[in-house]
């Protein structure tokens, strides 16, 4: 049976950028464990001979011509922004490097 520990939930929350409180972690970990147990039944059910389906309808090659279409105005683009400066989105200081 798969095991999802509190520490693992904390790590996943970190990966998903959610600042879970201790109380939330306590609450969530056992719930996730129950869900995980219920979905674990499918492990090993389909072998290598079964292809994976990522998309229900088999389609390929859907392209767009390289023709410019109207963009939003900067006002529209920035209309929902929590903070704007010099027509740019103002964001708090960034700690990590670009990838």
């Amino acid at each position: 049976m798969p095991e999802i520990t509190r520490d693992e939930v904390a790590h996943l929350a970190d990966l998903a950028r959610i600042d879970l409180s201790d109380a939330e972690l306590d609450h969530l970990a056992p719930q996730l464990q129950v869900i995980l147990e219920s979905v674990a039944s499918i492990q090993g059910l389909a072998g290598d001979d079964v292809p994976a389906t990522s998309h229900p309808l088999p389609m390929t090659n859907v392209f767009r011509e390289d023709v410019v279409t109207p963009s939003l105005t900067p006002e529209q683009a920035l209309s929902g922004a929590p903070s704007v400066e010099e027509q740019r989105f103002a964001v708090p200081r960034i700690l990590g490097d670009e990838q």
């Binding site: 023709v67 410019v68 109207p70 963009s71 105005t73 900067p74 027509q87 740019r88």
Partner: peptide
Amino acid sequence: TKMFCGCPATFGGEPNSQVC
């Protein structure tokens, strides 16, 4: 145009003027 939309892929536009 850009990879996944019709916005211009050119340089030098005003900030956030080539977005959709």
